[in-house]
């Protein structure tokens, strides 16, 4: 039971972080379908930092360095989306999809190149981080507490305050609802949208490193992040683009994802004799069902996905 709670919390943290990223981008008026790719690149940044960080540094320094690396990689990668979608008015769906493919392909190529350079016989795309991972984990009895659970909560509070209590957040949301009106009162829509996408890059990168640290202590970058970026988008839609509701949605989805990791620990569930693939499918099936019931009365930002054109004011 404790294991289920542990996994639920950690997967919910991933989903929460990434969904909040998507939330910022969409409130500014850009649909960020590239979250999956941003997660992979953020994870790559963090994993590389864990590999190359000097040995014997304190846990705190390690956590800070890894987070900064993930944030930086996510930020830089999301600027590819921003420049295409905002400045060049590209189709956001195509660019997002391209970023997802590019993320996995680039991470695989980079990691393989590093591995092969270190050892010519090693052609795997795996990075190991057994020792550095310990910095993130505190054992409380049998419960493995992960610092990312705290980071996710802090991120949630920051997101809520930024969106609803600051001038910046309200202006950002105006750009996603009615950019022409926002522009007419002197808000720079392009800058605001850039800010929205870059913040989603930060959150996405953090979510990515959190995801690969959730279970195992090595990561094969060929696998990407198994649709988690899109699950996070489903969480965001289910949460109706509101941070506090997104948090609840993330817990629900996290629970179903965690079940596929730990269902063997429950005698009732193993007695049902359902193949493990069914548990693997669960989060995706649940999200489809949930979306079917909640999308009808969708409260999506009105101008999302539409490139801003000054001449249409």
């Amino acid at each position: 039971m404790l294991l289920l709670i542990q996994y639920t919390l950690i997967f919910a943290s991933v989903l929460l972080l990434v969904a909040l990223g998507g939330c910022f981008a969409e409130h500014s008026g850009v649909i960020n379908l590239g979250l999956e790719g941003i997660m992979v690149i953020g994870a790559l940044g963090g994993a590389l930092m864990m590999r190359y960080a000097p040995e014997g540094i304190s846990s705190f320094a390690m956590i800070v360095l890894v987070l900064l690396a993930a944030i930086l990689f996510g930020l830089l990668y999301s600027s590819l989306l921003a420049v295409a979608a905002i400045n060049f008015k590209a189709d956001q769906t195509i660019v997002g999809t391209a970023l997802n493919m590019l993320g996995t392909a680039a991470a695989t190529v980079i990691v393989k190149a590093i591995n092969t350079a270190a050892n010519p016989d090693d052609v795997s795309s795996t990075i190991q981080y057994v020792v550095p991972k310990k910095a993130f984990i505190v054992n409380i009895g049998t419960f493995q507490f992960n610092w990312f659970m705290v980071i996710a909560v802090i991120a949630l509070i920051i997101a809520y305050v930024t969106l609803y209590k600051t001038k910046f957040g309200l202006r950002l949301m105006a750009c996603g609802e009615h950019p022409q009106a926002a522009a007419s009162v002197g808000i720079n829509v392009f800058k605001m949208r850039w800010a929205g996408v870059l913040i989603s890059g930060i959150y996405g990168g953090l979510g990515g490193i959190c995801y690969i640290l959730a279970g195992v202590s090595e990561w094969k970058f060929e696998n990407g992040v198994a649709g988690f970026g899109f699950l996070a988008l489903a969480v965001m839609i289910f949460g109706q683009w509101k941070p506090q509701r997104i948090a609840l949605a993330a817990l629900l989805f996290g629970l179903f994802r965690a079940l596929s990791n730990v269902y063997t620990g429950f005698s009732i569930l193993t007695a049902l004799n359902i193949p493990s693939t069914v548990y693997n499918m669960m989060p995706y099936i649940v999200s489809l069902v949930v979306l079917a019931f909640t999308s009808k009365s969708s409260r999506a930002p009105k101008a999302e996905g539409i490139p801003y054109d000054k001449s249409t004011r």
Binding site: A90, V95, A98, M101, L102, A105, V109, T116, E222
Partner: peptide, 25 residues
């Protein structure tokens, strides 16, 4: 294979899609 991996072609095709986003422009 001693220097690169075959995924380099995936990289190129994903770059091409990204660039296709700029076709309108």
């Amino acid at each position: 294979k001693t220097m690169y991996c075959s995924q380099i072609s995936d990289l190129i095709s994903s770059l091409i899609i990204y660039l296709c986003g700029f076709v309108l422009f």
